[in-house]
Design a protein around this nucleic acid. Sequence first.
DNA 1: CATTATTATTCAATAATTTTGAATTTTGCA
DNA 2: TGCAAAATTCAAAATTATTGAATAATAATG
Lengths: 235, 235
Amino acid sequence: MIQSVERAIHILEAIAHAGGAAHLNEIAGITELRSTTAHNILKTLQSLGYVRRRGGDTRYHLGDRIQNLARVAGDDDRLRRDLRALLEAMAEESGETVFLAVPSGDEVYFLDAIESRETLKAGSQSGERLPMAGSAIGLLFLAHIPRIRQRMLETHADRISLNLELEIEAIAQRGYALDQENWLPGLSCVAVPYAEAGEVRAGFGLAGPSFRLPLGRLEMLAGLMGDILDDRVPI
Amino acid sequence: MIQSVERAIHILEAIAHAGGAAHLNEIAGITELRSTTAHNILKTLQSLGYVRRRGGDTRYHLGDRIQNLARVAGDDDRLRRDLRALLEAMAEESGETVFLAVPSGDEVYFLDAIESRETLKAGSQSGERLPMAGSAIGLLFLAHIPRIRQRMLETHADRISLNLELEIEAIAQRGYALDQENWLPGLSCVAVPYAEAGEVRAGFGLAGPSFRLPLGRLEMLAGLMGDILDDRVPI
DNA sequence: CATTATTATTCAATAATTTTGAATTTTGCA
DNA sequence: TGCAAAATTCAAAATTATTGAATAATAATG
C-alpha cells in the first residue's frame, strides 16, 4: 500500500467532499496531513492537471483531467440499475432475448440480459466479453464512438476489411446495427445505442432465431427499442 | 513533485489510453515501470476503488470511484465551448445581458457572458463568484442539485430562512428561477437549468433593468431560453 | 493431459523518496 | 498602510518505496 498515492487520493476526495474547491489548510485538516505534505501532493496533482486554481482564487479545484478518465471509466453499475427498466420493457414488448452491453477496452462487455420465454431463443451472455468486430453491438460502438473506432484503426488496421468499414458506415447512417446470420447461422440481431451527454455509453441488443426475425421485423424492433429509449423523460 | 503520485496518475492514464482495461505488463510497459512497482501502485489504487478487476479477467479496469470525482469536478472549458452557441442565441433573441454559470464549491462561478447592446444594461460578470443563496442562478442550483442543497443545509443550516426554502421549492416546481429586484433594486433576472445525463450541470441566466422585464416578459424569456436549450439535437 | 511459456505475485535488503518543522513570502483584510 | 493568516520554500532526517530475484498462478501449446 503506497502511502503517498493513498494520500493523493484522499486529497482529491477531500476537495470533492468540500464541493469541488478547498483551501490548502482546509484540505490538510480533513486529510490530517501537515500542510507541507498536502502542498507537495497538490503541486504534483496540479502539474498533472488533476487539480487547478482559477484566476485569483487560492483554493484548489478539481481539474479537467479527471473528466478524461471518467469518460473511459464508464460506470457500469449505475447504468445497469438505471437501464434495467428499459431492458424489461424491451423484453416484454419484443418477446425475444435482450441484453445491455458497454464497451470495455477493445471488447464488448455484457452487463445485463433478459432471456426470451420462447422455447427456441438466444442465450443470454451477461458477464461475457466479445471482440468489438464480432457482434452487432460491437459494430454499433465502432460506428458511434470515435475513440473506439480510432483505437481499432491503430491496433488492428490490417484486419479491417472494406466490408467492415462499409458496414460501420451504414450503421452510423441509420443509427442502429443489424446482424442477419453473420455471426451465427440461424441467429439474427439488432442493436441500438444509448447516449448520455451526447455520447454513446452503452447499447441494447436483441437476438433470436432468424425465422422469427425477418428484415422487416428487425427494423420494426429497432424502432421499438428506440421509442422505449426516447420515452425516458429528461428534466 | 512526488514521484509515486505521478506514477499512479500515469498508470490510470495508461489504462484509460488502453480503452479502460489493461494487463499489468501492458501497463508497466507503457509507463516504463518495473512490473513490481506498477503492481504495488495498482494494488493501492484497487483498494481505494480507483481500479478494479472484474470476474475472471486479470486485467485492471478503471474503477467506479473516478465517477464520484468527475461528478463534482465538472468540466468548465468543455461546457463553455459547447454552450457558447446557445448563449449567443439567447443574447440575440432576448436583447438582454445573458450569462452561463456553474456551481463551484458552495459558490456560483460565472463561465461566460454576453452583454446587451442596450444603453441601460446589466453588466457581465464572467470569472466572478457569487454565494449560492445570493443570485437567481444560485437558487436554481440549490433547487435542482441535491448534493448542493445538502451541503448548504449541513454548513449554513442556521442561515436558511423559511422564505429561502419556499423560494427553492417554487423553483424546483416550475423549473426556472426568477429574481425581481431581490438582489438589486431595478434589476430583474431569470435563470434556466442546463442538464446532462439527467443532472443539472450549469445554468443560463439573463438580467436587465426591471422596466424592460415585467413578470410576463420574464416568464416568456424563461420559455424562450428553455426552447433554445431543447433545440439541441441529441443523437 | 502434460508441458511450456507467459503473466502475476511475494519477499527482504537497499537506495531513494518523502516527510518534517522552521523560516519566509505572499495574500487578504481592517 | 500595517497586521494576521495563509501559502510556499528549504535542508536534514527518517521512513517509505523500489529493486531484482524467486515463486506461484494462469494460459497456451503440442
